[in-house]
Amino acid sequence: MKKGFIKIDSQRCKGCGLCVSVCPKGRIRIAEALNLKGYHPAEFQEDEMDKKGRCNACTLCALICPDVAIEVFRE
């Protein structure tokens, strides 16, 4: 199975939640902390917290991110 991970630029993110809605693995959530602009940014959940399967670098989150805040990596 392909493995991947994403990096979310929490300062670019405006917490719109579109990435959360498209992630097939349910791996992204909105953070409780605020960024400098006052938004709750999206955050990538680390492996150990997740039971739904690993990120496979499908890039759907990055495709829909209006703020180009997500970079996607494949291992």
């Binding site: 300062q11 670019r12 917490g15 719109c16 938004y39 991110c65 209006p66 703020d67 180009v68």
Partner: peptide, 13 residues
Amino acid sequence: NVFHYCPGCGHSI
């Protein structure tokens, strides 16, 4: 540059 658009705006996509 960081986009000035509102959260969820289609313009920046």
